[in-house]
Structure formats: structure tokens, C-alpha cells
């Protein structure tokens, strides 16, 4: 996937979790969970969505590496998505 495809995927999944969010206003280096008020259930659903769409295994220990949009793109790229 290209970086843009990953971004689009992230927004698609987050759109289902935080329908009111305006992703145009999102800073790529902003902490996503803070910015979008994502609780742990939402975050688990987000990880589930990423996993189902890309097939990438995202162990719990790696959650800390997925805090900003930039992080997520880099992480998924590295994992070969």
C-alpha cells in the first residue's frame, strides 16, 4: 500500500468510530487518541479494522508505536502492508 492508501484506510476506519471527526484538521503528528477522544474499546476496534484490512499482525506490545498518523503509516509500511 502507498502512504496515501494507508492514510485513507486509517480515516475510513476512524470515520466509523468517530463519525463527527474532521480529518482535514488532524495534524499528522498529533496523538490520535487524544485528538479524537478514542477510548480503549475504540482503539481495539481500530486495531481490529487495520488488522482485517491489511492482514498485518499488530501485537499489543506495539500499540505504543501507533500513536500518531505518521507512526501508523511508518509502522504498517515496515510490516509490509
Amino acid at each position: 500500500m502507498t502512504d496515501d492508501e494507508i492514510r485513507k484506510l486509517v480515516f475510513d476506519i476512524l470515520g466509523g468510530i468517530a463519525p463527527e471527526a474532521d480529518f482535514d484538521l488532524l495534524d499528522e503528528d498529533e496523538e490520535l487518541r487524544e485528538a479524537l477522544d478514542i477510548d480503549s474499546m475504540d482503539f481495539l476496534n481500530f486495531i481490529t479494522g487495520l488488522h482485517q484490512a491489511t492482514g498485518v499482525d499488530i501485537p499489543e506490545n506495539d500499540y505504543a508505536r501507533l500513536s500518531t498518523l505518521t507512526d501508523i503509516v511508518a509502522y504498517l509500511r515496515q510490516k509490509g502492508a
Binding site: S40, M41, L44, H51, Q52, I58, P59, E60, N61
Partner: peptide, 15 residues
């Protein structure tokens, strides 16, 4: 964390 390790996100548990 032992329980969740190796499980896909759909089967993971929250505290």
C-alpha cells in the same frame, strides 16, 4: 498481556 499475546485483535480482551 499473556492472554492477548498471539491472539488476533478480534479475540483480545480489555482490562
Amino acid at each position: 498481556s499473556r492472554y492477548n499475546e498471539g491472539r488476533p485483535p478480534t479475540e483480545r480482551m480489555l482490562a
